[in-house]
Design a protein around this nucleic acid. Structure first.
Lengths: 197, 197
DNA sequence: AATTAATGAATGAATGTTTATTCATATATT
DNA sequence: AATATATGAATAAACATTCATTCATTAATT
């Protein structure tokens, strides 16, 4: 038999990919840099991934997927209102941003990059989750009848991620999100969804 | 004397740069592609700009600058409330997105790219404008006392630009912004700024 | 138990492509 | 004729990807 795969290496490669992209941007991150940061030979990356794009894709899709699953989990607790779902989800995003700054900055960058479109399977899942959320909110009266899935999706996901990112890579200097922001964001979104327009 | 510079060429280069970046991303856009789209020789770009980064930088900074000037102009009309300023600004963003889809998509991409940080001179101007807006809103009671410049800036600029972009590059297919969105966005922002938290 | 064969992990130099940038040259204008 | 515009082939650096090779581990054989 041959020697075993060093699982540590895969972990190092994933971490190095995110770190390098956060520091240099998707443009600026090269395979050589990533390999060096991972303390792994350049060629070895191609044993685990088909190429640079596939490597980054997988990390991004995994994160999108886990966000969907997280929302689905919160919904399956069968709450009668969306407020606790929103609050828990936003809380988790803020904790994630504080505990995993590299991973969350990496996700932010990809969310806004035209070269990394998520596959339709993930899109469908995401729409499904938003429809479930909408159903709860419609019943409880928290979501106005004329709110569209698009608006729900935008505010729950993009608005939250962007605000957290914007706050920490601030004009005026670094300012981290705090737990105050959980209520701030939750209330803002609930307000927006409630409004008759 | 020598022949005159063909002003048309500069215009074509600017348009081609934005078009190429919108289609291929900042990563994927090469000088060769830009030159080809502009119907100009590759080398000629270097007569007008120091390089690729400088070319993109200038287009981006010009846009940031014009947004600042636009807000300043609206403020200098001396309104007693921020509502008309916000409404006009958002209206203009939507009209711009409809009339200049390429330019507005280009701006969106750069707004979220870590490799294109705006220079501090432009930052200062932007903060100044937001402070003026805040002063009006504080006096009129439209902006809660505990709102920070950061929050104002985020919602007036990033939130609006992102929502418009998100709506048109929609999950469910292309869906353009309409004039309904002017009121929708204006009300959302006014609500967020008003809220005591 | 000692030795050898077999296998897949891991390397990193080599490869070929792509890229931004330069420059010798041609062209147009006055 | 003089001079600046404009070209696009040439250049060199950077890059992703490949591949021949080495290395570690285990199974089989004695």
């Amino acid at each position: 038999m041959a020697r075993k795969i060093d699982e540590e290496k895969l972990i190092r490669i994933k971490a190095a990919t995110m770190k390098t992209i956060v520091e240099k941007g998707i443009e600026g991150a090269t395979i050589a840099m990533i390999a060096k940061n991972a303390n792994v030979s350049g060629g070895y990356l191609y044993r685990l991934y088909r190429g640079k794009q596939a490597l980054i894709d997988e990390l991004y899709f995994d994160k999108v997927n886990s966000l969907n699953n997280e929302l689905e989990f919160l919904i399956e607790l069968n709450p009668t209102t969306i407020a606790p779902i929103l609050k828990a989800f936003i809380q988790n995003r803020i904790v994630y941003a504080l505990n995993e700054p590299v991973a969350s900055k990496f996700f932010y960058q990809l969310l806004h990059n035209v070269n990394f479109k998520i596959p339709s399977k993930l899109k469908k899942k995401s729409i499904l989750v938003m429809e479930q959320l909408n159903a709860i909110g419609q019943k409880s009266g928290e979501i106005s009848m004329d709110i569209e899935i698009l608006q729900l999706h935008f505010h729950v996901l993009v608005y939250v991620v962007d605000y957290i990112h914007f706050k920490r890579t601030n004009f005026l200097g670094i300012e981290n999100t705090t737990n105050n922001d959980v209520n701030y964001l939750t209330n803002n979104i609930l307000n927006i969804l409630k409004k008759d327009n």
